[in-house]
Simulated scan of single mutants.
Amino acid sequence: MARSIRLFDRKAPRFKPQPKVLILCEDSKSGKRYLEEAAFHFRANAQVEIAHCGVTHPSGIVEKAIIRQKRFDKVFCVLDRDTHLCFERAINLARPHLKINVIASYPCFEFWLLLHFGFNRKPFRAVGKHSPGHLVARSLREKPNMDKYEKGENNNYFAQLLGEPFQRARALAPKIIEDVAVSGEPNPSTEIHLLMDEFETLSKPQAI
């Protein structure tokens, strides 16, 4: 009888439970769609909620993250530096909260897309009425098959740039961050590659 009972004993779990991850973005269309497609590509979408929280300024996004963090193991705030006056405040708001990670782009998310086409460390400065973010988008539209890019459009640029361009961006972004640490100049740079790394990690069971 004892032997029969042992046959039904539960085995100890081999893997950690998948963490629940929240990603809040300021962009409700193109950037959000890109991240959704990336999460799906890495098969991490079951554990990841990607949302536009109704505000488009950095400090407001972090404030929403602070409110929602209790339901998640990790929270990422995808922020554009651009000309936001509250950017530094957002960084300071996030700092005491261990669950909250800021993914910053200088000046904007579109610089990550621009890296799919090659290395770039020339700063983007406001010119007249054109913000740094506007100038990045304009540079992006000069690249092959990107001439119709608009931040507010819901196009699948992840699928379009997947393959060698995507791997190029993943290789270049951390090298630029290393240069930022040496030079002290973050414009231009992006940390979006850290989210790609997170998606890839979430696709693999983590041993206990």
Rank of each mutant, 00 (worst) to 15 (best):
S189T: 04
K16Y: 08
Y149W: 07
S105C: 13
F158R: 06
A94G: 08
I176F: 11
A137N: 01
S183E: 08
F166H: 10
H134E: 14
K16I: 09
S59Y: 06
H193Y: 15
E110F: 12
D147G: 09
R89T: 10
P205A: 14
A65W: 06
I177M: 08
G118H: 10
P165M: 02
H57I: 13
L140Y: 06
L85A: 15
R141E: 10
P19T: 12
Q167D: 07
H57C: 11
V136Y: 11
K70C: 01
P17M: 14
E198W: 03
F42R: 10
F117G: 02
L172K: 08
S28R: 14
N45G: 00
P123A: 07
H193M: 05
H134S: 13
R71F: 03
D73K: 01
A104D: 06
T190M: 04
A90D: 03
C77M: 11
K16A: 15
E36M: 10
E49M: 11
C53P: 15
K64A: 10
L172V: 12
F87Y: 11
E142D: 13
I50D: 02
Q167L: 05
K32H: 14
E36T: 10
L79D: 00
K129Q: 07
I100F: 05
P107C: 14
L162C: 08
V75Q: 02
L162I: 06
A44Y: 07
N92L: 14
K16M: 11
P17Q: 09
E63K: 14
R168I: 00
S203Y: 00
R121I: 15
A46K: 13
K11P: 03
H41V: 01
A94C: 07
R170H: 02
H116L: 08
L24P: 04
I91V: 14
R141A: 04
C108T: 11
V127W: 07
A94F: 05
R71S: 08
R6V: 13
K64S: 11
L24W: 08
E49W: 05
A2Q: 12
S28H: 13
Q69A: 01
K74L: 11
N101K: 12
A137W: 01
K74T: 00
A137Q: 09
C108R: 10
K99Y: 05
V78E: 00
F199R: 01
T201K: 15
H130T: 13
D27A: 03
Q69I: 01
